[in-house]
Structure formats: structure tokens, C-alpha cells
Simulated assay, not measured.
Amino acid sequence: MARRKKVYEGKAKILYEGPEPGTLIQYFKDDSAPTAAVPAPAAVEGKGVLNNRLSEFFMAGLNSVGVPTHFIRRLNMREQLVRMAEIIPVEVVVRNFAAGDISTRLGIPEGTPLPRPIVEYYYKDERLGTPLVSEEHVIAFNWASQQDLDDMVALALRVNDFLSGVMMGVGIRLADFRLEVGRVWEGDYMRLIVADEISPDSCRLWDMRGLQDGQDREGTPREPGPLADVYTELARRLGVMPSNVTHTTKPTLIN
């Protein structure tokens, strides 16, 4: 399928006009998102191919259990056909375990199970560092309505249940993840759907294999650690590993 006009290019993906009205072609790049340690994107060979397959796996799975997403079908090794959506400028982060920013802010040791999944909102503005915001900010600045927020939380928690179960089945703990949500119109009716991607770039994943012993030499209960070569290992465990893709890298973690 021939590409059309470029609509948008981000750190990890390019969007092109789709073959039909209301569709886009989403191309997965090999570039990794910048971090504090590496401010410029770095190319990781094969990452785009793996993230395309992994996002297809998760999005198609969500569609099959009634969670609406923008995903229509995979076109080739690096491209997907997706629905065009109006992206709400608020990232939704769901946390199951303390890690990263929440550990720093609240002094909770990393790896501590949270009493229930915690949903946070981050304003999508890279110039500001995608800051944490409250519901009051989101509603006051008209980024989303109260009904939108209620629907976003319900959507995010359904995604969390699905992803946590899938990951647990292959020996991986889902510590936290981020979602982008978009609006689509079906006639006069507006609905919210999961957009962008679901891949190791948007999840914090810990390896639970090798923990069967339960304790280390000092008798301290073991905690899972990050997956080595997260893209390849996750694709392999889920059975979506394309042939001829091998590399070693680390995931981009949520703050």
C-alpha cells in the first residue's frame, strides 16, 4: 500500500494519510524516545518491527474483549492501519507498583505493591516535561470534560486488567503503563478509544522468572527486576517474535 502525505512525525512513529477517509497509516521507527541520560533519540535496530508486532498483539486483544482501540490491522513489518482520532492532550498513567516518579514524590520504596491501581494524569507538552496534573486542571483548562475523565479511567482500568493478566501469564509483572486516548465520532455519537501504541516504550515491565526460590541468601524476599532486552524477550514470550530481528536494549520507562 503506497504511503500518502505525512501527517505527523514523533520520536518513535510517523503518521501518514490513510487509504480511506478517517484512517491513518502508522509507521514504527527504530528511534528510541529520549531520556534524561540520553537527550537525543537513539536508533535501535529492529525496535520498530517489534513494537509494531507487540502493539498489534495488545490492541487486537483489547478489541477482541470489547475495549475499543484505533487499531484496524497490520499492513506490513512496520506499518499499521489505524482510525483517525482526536487525541486528548492528557496521558493517563496507571500504576500497580511504586516505581519511578511516584516513589520519588511520595517516598515509597520502589517495588511496593500499591493498595489499588492508581490513575494519574500528565499534560502532553514536552516543552514543559509532560507535568503531572490534577482532574481540576484537566477540566478547568478544557482539555477534557468530567465525563471524559470518568470514561478514561474506566477505559484505563480495563486495559490494566487485560495487560496485567497477559503479562502475568508469561512471567512478567506490569508495574505501570501510560495510555493515550482519542475521540472518534460515529454519526452524532462520540466515543473514547485507546490510541497511539501499547509496547515496551509505554510500559514498565519486571521479570518474575527466576524468583521461584522466594528469598535471597540473606533471607530477604526477592523482587522482580527489569527484563533484559525487553523488546525481543517480550515478543518471544508472547509468541509474536519476527524472524531475523535481534538486538539488545532497555525499555523507555515512565517517570
Rank of each mutant, 00 (worst) to 15 (best):
D207K: 13
D151W: 02
L253V: 08
N255S: 12
L81Q: 07
E86Y: 07
D216C: 03
M167S: 05
M152K: 07
S134W: 12
A40V: 14
V194D: 01
K47L: 03
A195K: 00
E79N: 12
G219P: 07
P21W: 12
R191Y: 06
P200G: 03
N51F: 03
N142E: 11
N51E: 07
A2L: 13
F57K: 09
Y16F: 14
S134P: 06
R236A: 15
G182R: 07
V82F: 04
E180V: 02
A98H: 01
E79H: 12
P19R: 09
V44W: 05
A195D: 00
G61T: 05
L211N: 05
A98K: 00
W185P: 03
I139P: 03
M84I: 02
Y8F: 14
G107A: 10
H137W: 14
T249P: 02
R53D: 01
Y231G: 05
T35H: 05
G169C: 08
L128A: 11
M208I: 04
D31V: 11
L75Q: 04
H137V: 13
Y16H: 05
I172K: 01
G48K: 03
K11Y: 10
I14E: 12
R217Q: 14
G171K: 01
S134D: 15
A99Q: 11
Q80H: 06
L179P: 00
G225E: 15
R105D: 13
L227W: 00
L227M: 09
R183Q: 12
V92Y: 00
P41N: 12
A156W: 04
E186D: 15
G165M: 08
L253D: 04
E79W: 05
Y231D: 15
S64C: 09
I102S: 03
S64W: 11
R53E: 13
G129A: 10
P117K: 14
E9K: 00
V133E: 03
L157N: 08
T112P: 01
G187I: 11
A175C: 12
E86L: 10
P117F: 07
P39H: 05
R237M: 10
V38N: 14
I25E: 07
I72S: 06
T249S: 15
S145C: 09
A156F: 08
G48R: 03
L62C: 09
K250Q: 15
F162C: 09
T130I: 07
N52L: 12
